[in-house]
């Protein structure tokens, strides 16, 4: 059974604005799902609805089989949330604020666990500092420590690496990887596509309150991926011979050719192209292929939705 099951979730605000327009999503236990979407796509609203910060207008959201509205205690006990904004009490001490987070879940004090979490996030040396003395990156670590203090089984990271330096980003990915090893389900929102590419198992694309697609990262990239073939010629050309018109070639700056093909197609047409090139008297010196990035796929999807609307 899915760890997080969202069925036709809707959220509309008083002004009539619909932040979520019938979201359906199923997240398996132990996977890392990256939710990609532009600003205002509904990512944070979706997370808020799952975590209890906002009430969905309609639909059903379950965590670990528990309805987040009716059975909120059992559902929320499983969930940890790292919010997008750095929301911390400035005067609180690092350790005590993390202990407080654990207490809020009604759990007994556990010094060993808190120490382990603080060490894992390189916060142990700062444990007696007050939050306002910490740098921005350190504060973000404190937010993560707070979210982990009750040992959640599902962790939501809302834009965890927005405005974060490279080192912290790597650290964060390490923490995520370690949690995944422990079987924790992780959902992160991001608009850095490279982040999704680096750590996610599956990628969901959300825009205008709707999930446009959820798919295994690898298969997504393969299924939707267009490849480009760069052909370097022994003798650079100024114009593309008309006999090659059917291939929709682009002349590269170096006088070579660029051929775009769909990996999904039955025939990529590469063999025929090579033959036709040779027929046209062009001699191939080198070839290279490049796969489209998630970014291209993402931009394509969002553009498609805009066109449809």
């Amino acid at each position: 059974m899915a760890m997080v099951q969202i069925t036709d979730a809707r959220k509309s605000y008083e002004g009539g604005f619909e932040a979520l327009r019938g979201v359906n999503l199923s997240i398996e236990q132990g996977e890392i799902l990256a939710l990609l979407g532009p600003n205002g796509a509904g990512k944070t609203t979706l997370i808020s609805a799952i975590c209890g910060i906002t009430q969905p207008t309609s639909g059903l959201i379950q965590v670990g089989g528990h309805d987040v509205v009716r059975d909120y205690r059992k559902a929320r006990a499983l969930v940890g949330l790292v919010p997008q904004e750095i929301n911390l009490e400035p005067f609180a001490k690092v350790r005590s604020t993390v202990e407080f987070s654990r207490g809020l879940f009604g759990l007994k004090r556990d010094d060993a666990l808190i120490e382990r979490i603080l060490r894992q996030l390189s916060l142990w040396d700062k444990r007696d500092n007050s939050v306002r003395e910490l740098s921005g990156g350190m504060k973000r670590r404190v937010l993560i420590a707070k979210a982990l203090a009750h040992e959640p089984r599902v962790l939501f990271l809302d834009e965890p690496t927005a405005g974060v330096d490279v080192e912290l980003r790597r650290d964060m990915w390490d923490v995520v990887a370690e949690m995944k090893r422990d079987g924790v389900t992780i959902i992160l929102t991001t608009h850095y596509i490279e982040e999704a590419e680096a750590i996610a198992d599956r990628v969901g694309v959300i825009n205008k309150g709707q999930i446009l697609l959820v798919e295994e990262k690898a298969s997504l990239m393969q299924r939707m991926g267009q490849k480009t073939l760069r052909i370097e010629l022994t003798d650079p050309i100024d114009a593309i011979p008309s006999s090659l018109n059917e291939y929709a070639l682009i002349r590269a700056e170096d006088g070579g050719l660029i051929y775009t093909y769909d990996t999904r197609a039955e025939r990529t047409g590469i063999g025929r192209l090579m033959a036709d090139l040779s027929e046209a008297g062009l001699h191939v010196r080198d070839v290279s292929t490049a796969q489209n990035s998630l970014e291209d796929i993402f931009v394509g999807l969002v553009a498609q939705q805009e066109d449809a609307a």
């Binding site: 910060i53 929301n87 911390l88 987070s101």
Partner: peptide
């Protein structure tokens, strides 16, 4: 008011408490 002001109210709202 203070947790509302600092934003830490998210913690109260997402904890298993009513």
């Amino acid at each position: 008011f203070f947790p509302k002001f600092t934003g830490t109210i998210y913690e109260l709202l997402s904890a298993p408490i009513n």
